[in-house]
Computed example of a mutant assay.
Amino acid sequence: MDDGARGGAPRGRRREADRNDVRLMRAARAAFAELGWDAPVSEIARRAGIGMGSLYRRYPSKEALAQRMRVLAMDRLTEQATAASARHPDPWTAFTAFLRDAVSDQEPGGPLLRLLGGRLPSTGEVAAAAARLRSALDALVAAAHEADALRRDVGPADVPLLLELLSLRIPAGAERSAELRSRYLELVLDGLRAPASGDPLTGPAPEWRELHAMWNAL
Score class of each variant (00 low, 15 high):
207 E>I: 09
55 L>I: 05
41 V>R: 02
7 G>K: 15
62 K>R: 13
75 D>K: 14
73 A>S: 09
180 L>A: 08
129 A>D: 05
133 L>P: 00
74 M>D: 06
137 L>K: 02
24 L>A: 06
4 G>F: 15
176 R>G: 03
78 T>D: 13
27 A>W: 06
126 V>H: 06
207 E>P: 06
165 L>V: 14
113 L>T: 13
50 I>E: 00
196 A>Y: 01
213 A>V: 14
127 A>R: 15
35 L>E: 07
52 M>H: 06
169 R>F: 10
209 R>K: 13
117 G>M: 12
17 A>S: 12
76 R>G: 07
144 A>M: 00
203 G>M: 01
130 A>N: 03
177 S>I: 05
193 R>Y: 08
5 A>I: 08
82 T>E: 10
137 L>F: 04
92 W>C: 01
175 E>H: 15
218 L>P: 08
5 A>C: 11
64 A>F: 02
118 G>L: 07
105 D>R: 06
140 L>I: 03
192 L>T: 04
20 N>H: 13
54 S>D: 03
155 G>H: 02
183 R>T: 05
136 A>M: 01
183 R>Y: 03
43 E>H: 14
30 A>N: 12
218 L>R: 15
136 A>C: 04
27 A>R: 03
57 R>F: 14
52 M>K: 04
44 I>K: 01
139 A>Q: 02
65 L>F: 03
130 A>F: 07
43 E>R: 14
63 E>S: 12
124 G>D: 08
163 L>E: 01
167 S>D: 03
32 F>V: 09
19 R>S: 09
80 Q>R: 13
108 P>F: 05
102 A>H: 01
79 E>S: 12
35 L>Q: 11
42 S>I: 07
184 Y>I: 04
20 N>Q: 12
191 G>M: 04
4 G>P: 15
212 H>E: 12
122 S>R: 09
107 E>W: 15
59 Y>W: 10
79 E>N: 11
215 W>T: 00
48 A>W: 02
153 D>I: 02
120 L>D: 00
129 A>P: 02
34 E>I: 15
138 D>W: 01
50 I>N: 04
77 L>S: 07
171 P>Q: 05
106 Q>S: 13
34 E>D: 13
140 L>S: 01
205 A>N: 08
210 E>P: 10
169 R>C: 10
157 A>K: 07
156 P>E: 07
15 R>C: 10
16 E>W: 11
76 R>V: 02
60 P>C: 14
131 A>M: 13
72 L>M: 08
91 P>T: 11
11 R>S: 14
69 M>L: 09
172 A>S: 10
14 R>Q: 15
41 V>Q: 04
61 S>A: 04
138 D>P: 00
